[in-house]
Design a binder for these strands. Structure first.
Lengths: 252, 252
DNA sequence: CGACAATATGAGTATTTACTCGTATATTAC
DNA sequence: GTAATATACGAGTAAATACTCATATTGTCG
């Protein structure tokens, strides 16, 4: 019965999403075949339909919220699309009307977080550019703001960062992202007069990696408040002393 | 036929390992019921049998090698136990004679890598302890050696670090590990006279996190040789300047 | 050799779970 | 109103794949 037109399906649509990661030779035959209207192109990983009516937006929102809660509460391993739909109070069919596959939901969640962080970074970049503001202060503010953002959905963010398997695509995107930020930082380093200029590109990468790692660690690690404050201080110290130009003293 | 004794199996043994991660309510009924001898206790995640005879050791080695190759070549998503066995030239049954589940193979691989790194860290700790050696030099050697180790199986290590989903257990182990290293570093910081002492514990965590992140980045990122050297220089600079005591100059 | 343990085999199974599609209902357009 | 479209539904399916177990082979030790 589902068997219909043997040719039509067969090895369709990458079932199983191959262990959650990049699905190989993903054919995704006829991404959607009937009904026109709000349907999106056949690019994999793009929503099939864009929500047009308010209730559709509600549905999408409910799905994302349910997914977020599930993943935060139960961890990635226990998060299934059917559970998400159930929890969201919508049918599994509706879920797949707006998300082409499970990964897309994860991606959406990640993008949401990313979007929340973007303005923080923008602001910090502007502050770093401002020669009137001490480097250390600018960096401190960056840290504090990033940590604030991470504190909004701490569990969710922790799981997303630590437990969710990273697809190759996601990894590549991150690298690309890093490149952009590094360019930005290089500009800043060149403009300011109080920074070392040994190798701006290398420096920018180091700064990026260190900041990212420390932020994640601070955000995801059970907070012993005392230490936390000290760690922020120390992190800021390390980064600011590092970039600041100094009349040399001991070679070390 | 396989149906035998309906009660005996049924909901046995956590099939599927639940998306590769921590399997919930994993019952693992009768881990192994017949045959005595080299059988291990029923602790999950421990080998079922320890290899006794040379050929058994061969088998285990072949399995691990095959797994390493597969994961390095195809990525985590395409690595299945059956493929591993095939590639290793042993039967799937033999595989499960020495590994209780798929995760155990991954764990083994990770432990192998960890074991390779252990002595490097030990040596570096000793060098860091030696007041006659400049901090910067000790740190540089640490970096160089770590990168050497990572260069042995670069693909494998990259996938293990970036693609493989981390179980909660693994995450907890890492935290525990960090604690141990941090204690060690705190001791060193206290002994040396040329280091700042603002907050040794915080400092040690910062050092650990930064070193780990930078090493991983340097090891897993396509190597533009020029930059690579510069990055090592810069990383060493950042860390050593950070720990070194300085007559203060500008507050920043 | 003979008994007993260690090791190897691999077809078969159970289970999970992402995803489809025919159909029903709500909304909008005219 | 009614046609057309957007949305919702959810039982059912296919496929993947981790893992078992009955049986066969090989090694060891007296």
């Amino acid at each position: 019965m589902r068997q219909a037109t043997p040719t039509s399906r067969q090895s369709a649509a990458s079932k199983h999403v191959k262990a959650r990661a990049v699905s190989p030779r993903s054919k995704r035959a006829h991404v959607l075949k009937g009904a026109a209207g709000a349907r999106r192109a056949s690019s994999p990983d793009l929503p099939r339909k864009l929500p047009r009516q308010p209730r559709a937006h509600e549905t999408v929102k409910a799905i994302l919220q349910a997914a977020a809660k599930l993943i935060a509460e139960q961890g990635f391993a226990l998060m299934t699309t059917n559970k998400i739909a159930e929890r969201a109070g919508v049918s599994i069919g509706s879920l797949y009307q707006y998300f082409p596959n499970k990964t897309a939901i994860l991606t959406s969640l990640l993008e949401e977080h990313q979007a929340g962080i973007q303005p923080v970074i923008e602001q910090s970049m502007r502050e770093l550019e401002d020669p009137k503001l001490a480097f250390s202060e600018a960096i401190r503010r960056l840290f504090v703001r990033l940590l604030e953002k991470h504190a909004v959905h701490p569990r969710l963010n922790r799981v997303l960062a630590e437990e969710v398997p990273r697809t190759r695509r996601a990894i590549a995107l991150d690298r690309h992202n890093e490149e952009a930020y590094v360019n930005r930082v290089v500009e800043i380093l060149r403009k300011r007069r109080d920074t070392r200029v040994a190798h701006p590109i290398a420096m920018a990468h180091i700064l990026f990696q260190a900041t990212q790692a420390l932020t994640r660690w601070l955000a995801h690690t059970p907070p012993e408040i005392h230490i936390r404050e000290a760690c922020i201080d120390e992190a800021v110290k390390m980064l600011s002393v590092y970039v600041q130009e100094r009349r040399r003293r001991s070679a070390g």
